[in-house]
Computed example of a mutant assay.
Amino acid sequence: MTRQSLDLDAVRAFIRIVELGSFTRAAEALRTTQAAMSLKLKRLEEMLGFRLVERTPRYVEISAQGATFLELARELLEAHDRALSAFTGARQRLTIGISDHVAGPELPALIARMNAQDPELLIEIRIGSSGDLLQSFDRRELDTVFVRQHADRSDGKVLAQESFGWFASPNWQRRANEPLPLATLAEPCGVRAMAGRLLDDAGIPWREVFVGGGVTAVAAAVMAGVGIAALAPRMLPFGAVDVGAKLGLPELARLPVLLHTRVHRGRAHEALDALCAAFRSVIRS
């Protein structure tokens, strides 16, 4: 009896279809056509003898047998990629997302620490909001994300708790009888939401005077004297001062830095451990 072999390209196509929930998006991710994806999946299903996904005009839904096969398929490709990397010298890729409120000025040193751990590892880093990065992680576009706690999520591993303060430039003065001027990150931002909620609960009127696309921009606005911002101390340029007690502002909660990852073994995991250790060393509670 001739034993058939699984087509790894077809297995990879199946995984992508399930992860992205669409033949079209999966085809784009693998740089091929929707017709080619459909053909690969059809041949894989014929070989296995059962349907892997149920197709409807509006969405793709994995079948019960497909769900069982999915984890085995992922293990198969992981084993294949590890073997290929070990014996062909192919560089393993690790894709990481880091929240802008987490990255901080230490990021170059953190990257250097990862590179020192494994110079042959290909590291790809994306900076963004916690919400956007978590969505990318769920779509399996990222292997790992470091984020602030998100209102819609209760999972993830806590790496550290970080303190926040109300910071302003040394010469900034609040104008009498005017709402507290805030510099914030664009929505959605958990730190922005926390600051606004605390001020509202304390009955302190406030208004946004600057919205930045990143923490660097917000810190620049603070040092320019535009207003104050709720930020972690390590994010501020030298000279920024905490004006919370002076203005009678509510105390900001410590916020956790959370790790979400699918990397649990091998060289990439060792490099990730080095990055986690580096984050713990620079984040002050």
Rank of each mutant, 00 (worst) to 15 (best):
Gly239Ser: 04
Arg140His: 14
Arg3Asn: 10
Ser154Val: 04
Arg25Thr: 06
Leu94Met: 10
Val53Tyr: 04
Leu247Ala: 09
Met47Asn: 10
Leu252His: 00
Ala219Leu: 11
Glu120Phe: 13
Val60Leu: 06
Ala193Asn: 01
Gln149Pro: 06
Tyr59Arg: 14
Leu76Tyr: 06
Val11Tyr: 02
Ile204Ala: 08
Ala29Lys: 12
Val60His: 00
Glu187His: 10
Glu71Gln: 12
His150Phe: 14
Ala112Lys: 13
His80Phe: 15
Glu78Lys: 13
Arg254Gly: 10
Leu159Asn: 01
Leu70Tyr: 04
Val145Ala: 11
Gly266Phe: 06
Arg153Ala: 06
Leu72Asp: 09
Arg262Phe: 13
Gly128Trp: 00
Phe238Ile: 15
Arg113Lys: 15
Glu187Gln: 00
Arg254Val: 07
Ala253Cys: 09
Gly248Phe: 11
Arg265Glu: 15
Val257Phe: 06
Pro170Ala: 15
Ala219Asn: 01
Met235Gly: 04
Ala245Leu: 08
Lys42Gln: 15
Met235Ile: 04
Gln173Ile: 11
Arg280Ser: 08
Leu84Asp: 03
Phe23Met: 02
Pro105Trp: 08
Ser130Met: 06
Leu255Pro: 04
Ile17Pro: 01
Val215Met: 08
Leu236Ser: 10
Asp118Trp: 10
Ala186Lys: 08
Gly97Phe: 07
Gly131Ser: 14
Arg58Asn: 12
Leu258Trp: 01
Leu259His: 04
Gly248Gln: 04
Ala79Gly: 12
Gly190His: 10
Leu94His: 01
Met235Cys: 01
Asp132Leu: 14
Ser169Tyr: 02
Thr144Met: 04
Glu71Pro: 00
Ser285Phe: 09
Arg280Glu: 12
Leu252Arg: 04
Ala193Ser: 05
Val147Asp: 00
Asp201His: 09
Ile123Asp: 05
Ala219Arg: 03
Arg55Cys: 03
Asp9Cys: 06
Ala79Ser: 11
Ser163Thr: 10
Asp273Tyr: 02
Arg31His: 12
Arg55Gly: 03
Ala224Met: 14
Ser38Lys: 06
Ala278Lys: 06
Ala116Gly: 15
Leu159Gln: 03
Ala90Gly: 07
Ala253Asn: 10
Val145Pro: 07
Met194Gly: 02
Phe50Pro: 02
